[in-house]
Simulated assay, not measured.
Amino acid sequence: MAGGLTDETAVTLRGADSDTVRSALETGESLPGTRGFAGEIDGHLVRDVLGRQPLFFDGDDPDKWAFDRATLTDPTPLSAGHVVEPDGGQREVWSLPTPVAHDGPAAVTGLGEAIDASLGSVESDGLAIAFSGGIDSALLAARLDAPLYVAGFPDSHDVKAARESARLLGREVRVVELDHDALVETVPPVVRATGRTNTMDVEIALPLYLVARRAAADGFDRLAVGQGADELFGGYAKVARAPEDPRVEADTVRCARREILGSVPAQLERDVLALRGAGVEPVAPLLDDRVVEAGLALSGRLLVSDRGERKYALRLSAREWLPDRITFREKKALQYGTLVARELDRLARQAGFKRRMDDHVGQYIESLVE
Protein backbone atom coordinates (compact mmCIF):
# COMPACT_ATOMS: atom_id res chain seq x y z
CA MET A 1 0.00 0.00 0.00
CA ALA A 2 2.95 2.34 0.39
CA GLY A 3 2.87 5.28 -1.96
CA GLY A 4 -0.78 4.77 -2.88
CA LEU A 5 -2.17 8.05 -1.57
CA THR A 6 -4.08 9.91 -4.30
CA ASP A 7 -5.11 13.03 -2.37
CA GLU A 8 -3.54 16.34 -3.25
CA THR A 9 -2.03 16.67 0.22
CA ALA A 10 0.88 14.67 1.57
CA VAL A 11 -0.96 13.72 4.79
CA THR A 12 -0.99 9.95 5.19
CA LEU A 13 -2.64 9.67 8.63
CA ARG A 14 -5.53 11.75 9.97
CA GLY A 15 -6.89 12.06 13.49
CA ALA A 16 -4.00 10.62 15.52
CA ASP A 17 -0.23 10.45 15.65
CA SER A 18 1.66 7.40 14.43
CA ASP A 19 2.74 6.26 17.89
CA THR A 20 -0.85 6.16 19.14
CA VAL A 21 -2.01 4.09 16.15
CA ARG A 22 0.98 1.73 16.36
CA SER A 23 0.25 1.13 20.02
CA ALA A 24 -3.43 0.50 19.28
CA LEU A 25 -2.46 -2.02 16.61
CA GLU A 26 -0.12 -3.81 18.98
CA THR A 27 -2.51 -3.92 21.94
CA GLY A 28 -5.86 -4.12 20.18
CA GLU A 29 -7.03 -1.07 22.15
CA SER A 30 -10.07 0.16 20.24
CA LEU A 31 -10.50 3.47 22.11
CA PRO A 32 -6.94 4.79 22.49
CA GLY A 33 -7.88 8.38 23.31
CA THR A 34 -8.63 9.95 19.92
CA ARG A 35 -11.66 11.23 17.98
CA GLY A 36 -11.05 8.68 15.27
CA PHE A 37 -8.27 8.11 12.77
CA ALA A 38 -7.58 6.70 9.32
CA GLY A 39 -4.71 6.50 6.89
CA GLU A 40 -1.56 4.56 6.19
CA ILE A 41 0.97 3.45 8.74
CA ASP A 42 3.86 1.03 8.24
CA GLY A 43 2.39 -0.29 5.00
CA HIS A 44 -1.10 -0.80 6.44
CA LEU A 45 -4.29 1.14 5.76
CA VAL A 46 -6.24 1.63 9.01
CA ARG A 47 -9.64 3.00 10.05
CA ASP A 48 -10.75 3.41 13.65
CA VAL A 49 -13.43 1.31 15.31
CA LEU A 50 -16.27 3.80 14.72
CA GLY A 51 -15.16 4.93 11.27
CA ARG A 52 -14.95 8.56 12.33
CA GLN A 53 -12.44 9.26 9.55
CA PRO A 54 -13.50 7.93 6.11
CA LEU A 55 -10.93 6.08 4.01
CA PHE A 56 -11.23 4.50 0.57
CA PHE A 57 -9.18 2.22 -1.59
CA ASP A 58 -9.64 1.65 -5.31
CA GLY A 59 -11.47 -1.53 -6.23
CA ASP A 60 -9.75 -1.53 -9.62
CA ASP A 61 -6.31 -0.90 -8.15
CA PRO A 62 -6.07 -1.69 -4.39
CA ASP A 63 -2.64 -0.03 -4.22
CA LYS A 64 -4.40 3.34 -4.60
CA TRP A 65 -6.23 4.89 -1.66
CA ALA A 66 -7.60 8.27 -0.60
CA PHE A 67 -9.49 10.18 2.07
CA ASP A 68 -11.65 11.67 -0.72
CA ARG A 69 -13.64 9.10 -2.68
CA ALA A 70 -13.85 11.38 -5.72
CA THR A 71 -10.15 10.90 -6.49
CA LEU A 72 -10.56 7.14 -7.10
CA THR A 73 -12.03 5.27 -10.06
CA ASP A 74 -13.84 2.67 -7.95
CA PRO A 75 -13.87 3.96 -4.33
CA THR A 76 -14.41 1.18 -1.77
CA PRO A 77 -14.74 2.18 1.90
CA LEU A 78 -12.38 0.53 4.34
CA SER A 79 -14.54 -1.07 7.02
CA ALA A 80 -14.38 0.51 10.47
CA GLY A 81 -11.99 -1.24 12.82
CA HIS A 82 -10.13 -2.90 9.96
CA VAL A 83 -6.70 -2.74 8.39
CA VAL A 84 -5.66 -3.51 4.83
CA GLU A 85 -2.53 -5.60 4.75
CA PRO A 86 0.22 -5.07 2.16
CA ASP A 87 -1.19 -8.02 0.17
CA GLY A 88 -4.60 -6.28 -0.08
CA GLY A 89 -6.54 -8.39 2.43
CA GLN A 90 -8.76 -6.78 5.06
CA ARG A 91 -8.55 -7.83 8.69
CA GLU A 92 -10.58 -6.65 11.70
CA VAL A 93 -8.30 -5.52 14.50
CA TRP A 94 -10.64 -3.43 16.68
CA SER A 95 -14.16 -3.93 17.99
CA LEU A 96 -16.09 -1.86 20.50
CA PRO A 97 -15.66 -3.02 24.10
CA THR A 98 -18.61 -4.40 26.06
CA PRO A 99 -18.12 -3.01 29.57
CA VAL A 100 -20.18 -4.03 32.57
CA ALA A 101 -23.30 -1.87 32.82
CA HIS A 102 -23.12 0.94 35.37
CA ASP A 103 -26.15 2.56 36.94
CA GLY A 104 -26.88 5.45 39.25
CA PRO A 105 -25.33 8.86 39.92
CA ALA A 106 -21.71 7.73 39.54
CA ALA A 107 -22.31 6.68 35.92
CA VAL A 108 -23.94 10.02 35.13
CA THR A 109 -21.09 11.88 36.82
CA GLY A 110 -18.54 9.88 34.86
CA LEU A 111 -20.29 10.71 31.61
CA GLY A 112 -20.35 14.41 32.50
CA GLU A 113 -16.64 14.36 33.27
CA ALA A 114 -15.89 12.70 29.93
CA ILE A 115 -17.97 15.28 28.03
CA ASP A 116 -16.33 18.10 29.99
CA ALA A 117 -12.85 16.80 29.16
CA SER A 118 -13.68 16.35 25.48
CA LEU A 119 -15.19 19.81 25.06
CA GLY A 120 -12.38 21.36 27.06
CA SER A 121 -9.86 20.02 24.57
CA VAL A 122 -11.50 21.58 21.50
CA GLU A 123 -9.58 24.53 20.06
CA SER A 124 -11.78 27.51 19.19
CA ASP A 125 -9.60 28.96 16.43
CA GLY A 126 -11.42 28.81 13.10
CA LEU A 127 -14.35 26.99 14.70
CA ALA A 128 -18.08 27.39 14.11
CA ILE A 129 -20.92 25.27 15.53
CA ALA A 130 -23.78 23.56 13.70
CA PHE A 131 -26.64 24.42 16.07
CA SER A 132 -30.17 23.03 15.92
CA GLY A 133 -31.22 23.98 19.45
CA GLY A 134 -31.35 20.41 20.77
CA ILE A 135 -29.32 19.02 23.63
CA ASP A 136 -26.42 17.74 21.50
CA SER A 137 -25.53 21.00 19.77
CA ALA A 138 -26.51 23.05 22.83
CA LEU A 139 -23.81 21.28 24.85
CA LEU A 140 -21.30 22.45 22.26
CA ALA A 141 -22.70 25.97 22.32
CA ALA A 142 -22.58 26.15 26.12
CA ARG A 143 -18.92 25.22 26.29
CA LEU A 144 -17.27 26.39 23.07
CA ASP A 145 -16.51 29.99 22.15
CA ALA A 146 -17.65 29.85 18.53
CA PRO A 147 -20.52 31.27 16.44
CA LEU A 148 -23.69 29.25 15.98
CA TYR A 149 -25.26 28.36 12.62
CA VAL A 150 -28.57 26.72 11.81
CA ALA A 151 -30.11 25.88 8.44
CA GLY A 152 -33.77 25.44 7.68
CA PHE A 153 -36.81 26.84 5.94
CA PRO A 154 -38.12 29.96 7.71
CA ASP A 155 -41.01 28.15 9.44
CA SER A 156 -39.01 25.05 10.33
CA HIS A 157 -38.75 23.48 13.78
CA ASP A 158 -34.94 23.69 13.79
CA VAL A 159 -34.83 27.43 13.09
CA LYS A 160 -37.39 28.14 15.81
CA ALA A 161 -35.69 25.83 18.32
CA ALA A 162 -32.25 27.23 17.55
CA ARG A 163 -33.41 30.79 18.11
CA GLU A 164 -35.09 29.91 21.41
CA SER A 165 -32.15 27.89 22.70
CA ALA A 166 -29.67 30.57 21.67
CA ARG A 167 -31.73 33.12 23.61
CA LEU A 168 -31.74 30.89 26.70
CA LEU A 169 -27.96 30.56 26.44
CA GLY A 170 -27.45 34.29 25.91
CA ARG A 171 -26.11 33.65 22.42
CA GLU A 172 -26.97 34.68 18.87
CA VAL A 173 -27.50 32.25 16.01
CA ARG A 174 -26.84 32.86 12.33
CA VAL A 175 -29.70 31.45 10.25
CA VAL A 176 -29.08 29.95 6.82
CA GLU A 177 -32.57 30.31 5.37
CA LEU A 178 -33.35 27.65 2.79
CA ASP A 179 -35.52 27.91 -0.28
CA HIS A 180 -36.24 25.73 -3.29
CA ASP A 181 -33.46 27.24 -5.39
CA ALA A 182 -30.92 26.42 -2.68
CA LEU A 183 -32.03 22.79 -2.57
CA VAL A 184 -31.94 22.35 -6.34
CA GLU A 185 -28.53 23.98 -6.65
CA THR A 186 -27.05 22.00 -3.76
CA VAL A 187 -28.12 18.48 -4.69
CA PRO A 188 -25.38 17.97 -7.35
CA PRO A 189 -22.40 19.03 -5.15
CA VAL A 190 -23.75 16.97 -2.25
CA VAL A 191 -24.05 13.91 -4.47
CA ARG A 192 -20.55 14.47 -5.85
CA ALA A 193 -19.09 14.82 -2.36
CA THR A 194 -20.86 11.84 -0.79
CA GLY A 195 -21.31 9.55 -3.78
CA ARG A 196 -24.90 8.94 -2.67
CA THR A 197 -28.23 9.63 -4.34
CA ASN A 198 -30.64 7.82 -2.02
CA THR A 199 -33.31 10.05 -0.60
CA MET A 200 -32.52 9.93 3.11
CA ASP A 201 -28.78 10.47 2.72
CA VAL A 202 -29.31 13.49 0.47
CA GLU A 203 -31.98 14.95 2.78
CA ILE A 204 -29.61 14.73 5.74
CA ALA A 205 -26.50 15.91 3.91
CA LEU A 206 -28.13 18.97 2.31
CA PRO A 207 -28.60 21.11 5.46
CA LEU A 208 -25.20 20.03 6.78
CA TYR A 209 -23.58 21.10 3.53
CA LEU A 210 -25.38 24.45 3.46
CA VAL A 211 -24.47 25.31 7.06
CA ALA A 212 -20.86 24.36 6.36
CA ARG A 213 -20.73 26.37 3.16
CA ARG A 214 -22.00 29.50 4.96
CA ALA A 215 -19.52 29.01 7.80
CA ALA A 216 -16.69 28.55 5.30
CA ALA A 217 -17.76 31.70 3.46
CA ASP A 218 -17.58 33.54 6.79
CA GLY A 219 -13.97 32.44 7.22
CA PHE A 220 -14.28 29.34 9.40
CA ASP A 221 -12.53 26.11 8.45
CA ARG A 222 -13.82 23.80 11.22
CA LEU A 223 -17.40 22.96 12.20
CA ALA A 224 -18.33 21.39 15.53
CA VAL A 225 -21.23 18.93 15.22
CA GLY A 226 -23.18 16.79 17.65
CA GLN A 227 -23.02 13.65 15.51
CA GLY A 228 -23.16 10.29 17.25
CA ALA A 229 -25.12 11.27 20.35
CA ASP A 230 -28.39 9.65 19.27
CA GLU A 231 -26.65 6.38 18.45
CA LEU A 232 -24.45 6.33 21.55
CA PHE A 233 -26.95 7.47 24.17
CA GLY A 234 -30.19 5.77 23.06
CA GLY A 235 -31.87 8.55 21.14
CA TYR A 236 -33.92 6.41 18.75
CA ALA A 237 -37.49 5.25 19.38
CA LYS A 238 -36.67 1.81 18.04
CA VAL A 239 -34.00 1.46 20.73
CA ALA A 240 -36.38 2.64 23.45
CA ARG A 241 -39.00 0.12 22.32
CA ALA A 242 -36.68 -2.88 22.12
CA PRO A 243 -37.41 -5.78 21.91
CA GLU A 244 -40.95 -5.05 20.69
CA ASP A 245 -39.82 -2.84 17.78
CA PRO A 246 -39.30 -5.00 14.67
CA ARG A 247 -36.64 -2.62 13.35
CA VAL A 248 -34.09 -4.02 15.81
CA GLU A 249 -33.16 -7.61 16.48
CA ALA A 250 -31.83 -7.02 20.01
CA ASP A 251 -33.81 -8.13 23.04
CA THR A 252 -32.74 -5.31 25.41
CA VAL A 253 -32.34 -1.55 25.18
CA ARG A 254 -28.62 -1.81 25.78
CA CYS A 255 -28.15 -4.42 23.06
CA ALA A 256 -30.33 -2.40 20.67
CA ARG A 257 -28.07 0.61 21.25
CA ARG A 258 -25.10 -1.60 20.39
CA GLU A 259 -26.86 -2.71 17.22
CA ILE A 260 -27.57 0.87 16.17
CA LEU A 261 -23.93 1.85 16.73
CA GLY A 262 -23.13 -0.41 13.79
CA SER A 263 -24.70 2.20 11.49
CA VAL A 264 -22.37 4.98 12.65
CA PRO A 265 -19.45 4.41 10.21
CA ALA A 266 -21.67 4.72 7.12
CA GLN A 267 -23.46 7.77 8.52
CA LEU A 268 -20.22 9.49 9.44
CA GLU A 269 -18.79 8.79 6.00
CA ARG A 270 -21.73 10.69 4.50
CA ASP A 271 -21.56 13.59 6.96
CA VAL A 272 -17.78 14.03 6.93
CA LEU A 273 -17.61 13.97 3.13
CA ALA A 274 -20.47 16.47 2.83
CA LEU A 275 -18.84 18.87 5.29
CA ARG A 276 -15.44 18.58 3.67
CA GLY A 277 -17.04 19.11 0.28
CA ALA A 278 -18.43 22.39 1.61
CA GLY A 279 -15.01 23.53 2.80
CA VAL A 280 -14.84 22.72 6.52
CA GLU A 281 -13.34 19.98 8.66
CA PRO A 282 -15.84 18.43 11.11
CA VAL A 283 -15.18 18.24 14.84
CA ALA A 284 -17.34 15.74 16.77
CA PRO A 285 -16.64 16.09 20.52
CA LEU A 286 -19.43 13.71 21.54
CA LEU A 287 -17.64 10.92 19.66
CA ASP A 288 -14.38 11.43 21.55
CA ASP A 289 -13.07 8.08 22.82
CA ARG A 290 -13.56 9.24 26.42
CA VAL A 291 -17.23 9.96 25.79
CA VAL A 292 -17.74 6.74 23.84
CA GLU A 293 -16.19 4.73 26.65
CA ALA A 294 -18.43 6.35 29.27
CA GLY A 295 -21.48 5.96 27.03
CA LEU A 296 -20.89 2.27 26.40
CA ALA A 297 -20.87 1.63 30.14
CA LEU A 298 -24.34 3.09 30.73
CA SER A 299 -27.08 0.73 31.81
CA GLY A 300 -30.25 0.36 29.78
CA ARG A 301 -32.25 2.47 32.26
CA LEU A 302 -29.72 5.31 31.84
CA LEU A 303 -30.14 5.14 28.08
CA VAL A 304 -33.94 5.11 28.33
CA SER A 305 -35.52 5.97 31.67
CA ASP A 306 -38.35 4.04 33.29
CA ARG A 307 -40.65 6.79 31.97
CA GLY A 308 -39.37 6.33 28.42
CA GLU A 309 -37.08 9.39 28.39
CA ARG A 310 -34.47 8.75 25.71
CA LYS A 311 -30.81 9.80 26.11
CA TYR A 312 -31.56 9.95 29.82
CA ALA A 313 -28.00 9.95 31.18
CA LEU A 314 -26.94 12.58 28.66
CA ARG A 315 -29.81 14.82 29.73
CA LEU A 316 -29.00 14.37 33.41
CA SER A 317 -25.32 15.18 32.90
CA ALA A 318 -26.13 18.16 30.65
CA ARG A 319 -28.06 19.90 33.42
CA GLU A 320 -24.71 21.14 34.72
CA TRP A 321 -24.45 23.44 31.68
CA LEU A 322 -27.95 23.77 30.19
CA PRO A 323 -31.37 24.92 31.40
CA ASP A 324 -34.04 22.22 31.55
CA ARG A 325 -36.00 23.79 28.69
CA ILE A 326 -33.15 22.79 26.42
CA THR A 327 -32.02 19.64 28.23
CA PHE A 328 -35.40 17.91 27.99
CA ARG A 329 -36.52 19.27 24.63
CA GLU A 330 -37.43 16.66 22.03
CA LYS A 331 -35.56 16.96 18.74
CA LYS A 332 -36.76 16.16 15.24
CA ALA A 333 -34.52 14.31 12.81
CA LEU A 334 -32.47 16.74 10.72
CA GLN A 335 -34.30 16.16 7.45
CA TYR A 336 -37.66 16.83 9.14
CA GLY A 337 -36.61 19.56 11.55
CA THR A 338 -35.25 21.66 8.69
CA LEU A 339 -38.23 20.80 6.39
CA VAL A 340 -35.79 19.63 3.72
CA ALA A 341 -37.61 16.29 3.37
CA ARG A 342 -40.98 18.00 2.95
CA GLU A 343 -39.72 20.51 0.40
CA LEU A 344 -37.75 17.98 -1.64
CA ASP A 345 -40.94 15.96 -1.85
CA ARG A 346 -42.78 19.06 -3.01
CA LEU A 347 -40.14 19.82 -5.65
CA ALA A 348 -40.21 16.23 -6.90
CA ARG A 349 -43.99 16.32 -7.36
CA GLN A 350 -43.81 19.69 -9.09
CA ALA A 351 -41.28 18.19 -11.50
CA GLY A 352 -43.64 15.34 -12.37
CA PHE A 353 -42.35 12.67 -9.98
CA LYS A 354 -45.59 11.65 -8.28
CA ARG A 355 -45.87 9.82 -5.00
CA ARG A 356 -47.40 6.80 -6.70
CA MET A 357 -44.04 6.27 -8.40
CA ASP A 358 -41.46 4.06 -6.71
CA ASP A 359 -39.03 6.28 -4.74
CA HIS A 360 -40.26 9.42 -6.46
CA VAL A 361 -37.90 11.74 -4.53
CA GLY A 362 -34.92 9.50 -5.31
CA GLN A 363 -35.81 9.60 -8.99
CA TYR A 364 -36.01 13.39 -8.81
CA ILE A 365 -32.56 13.56 -7.17
CA GLU A 366 -31.16 11.36 -9.93
CA SER A 367 -32.65 13.71 -12.54
CA LEU A 368 -30.82 16.67 -11.01
CA VAL A 369 -27.41 15.03 -11.30
CA GLU A 370 -27.75 13.31 -14.67
Score class of each variant (00 low, 15 high):
Glu185Ser: 08
Asp288Tyr: 09
Gly262Asn: 12
Ala138His: 09
Asp116Leu: 10
Thr34Gly: 08
Ala24Asn: 06
Gly15Tyr: 03
Ala215Arg: 01
Pro105Thr: 11
His82Asn: 01
Tyr236Lys: 12
Gly228Arg: 04
Asp136His: 13
Gly277Glu: 02
Ala216Leu: 00
Ala130Ile: 09
Asp345Val: 10
Ala138Arg: 06
Lys64Asn: 10
Ala240Trp: 13
Lys160Gln: 14
Gly277Asn: 02
Pro99Ser: 00
Ser79Met: 03
Glu370Cys: 04
Thr109Tyr: 10
Arg319Phe: 00
Asp271Ala: 07
Leu139Ser: 09
Asp289Trp: 05
Ile129Ala: 12
Ala141Thr: 07
Glu269Phe: 05
Lys332Met: 12
Phe153Asn: 04
Gly219Leu: 03
Ala146Val: 03
Val184Gln: 07
Ala182Pro: 02
Phe220Tyr: 13
Met357Lys: 09
Ala166Asp: 06
Leu275Glu: 01
Gly59Ser: 10
Ala166Thr: 07
Thr327Cys: 09
Leu296Glu: 06
Ser121Asp: 15
Ala151Pro: 04
Leu96Met: 06
Pro62Ala: 00
Val46Lys: 06
Pro265Asn: 02
Tyr336Asn: 09
Glu185Arg: 09
Ala205Arg: 01
Gln227Phe: 04
Asp125Met: 02
Trp321Val: 12
His157Tyr: 14
Asp17Glu: 07
Ser132Ile: 13
Asp116Arg: 15
Ile204Asp: 01
Ala348Tyr: 08
Met1Trp: 06
Ser124Cys: 15
Leu275Ala: 00
Thr109Leu: 14
Thr12Met: 03
Val292Glu: 07
Ala284Met: 07
Trp94Phe: 02
Leu111His: 06
His157Gln: 14
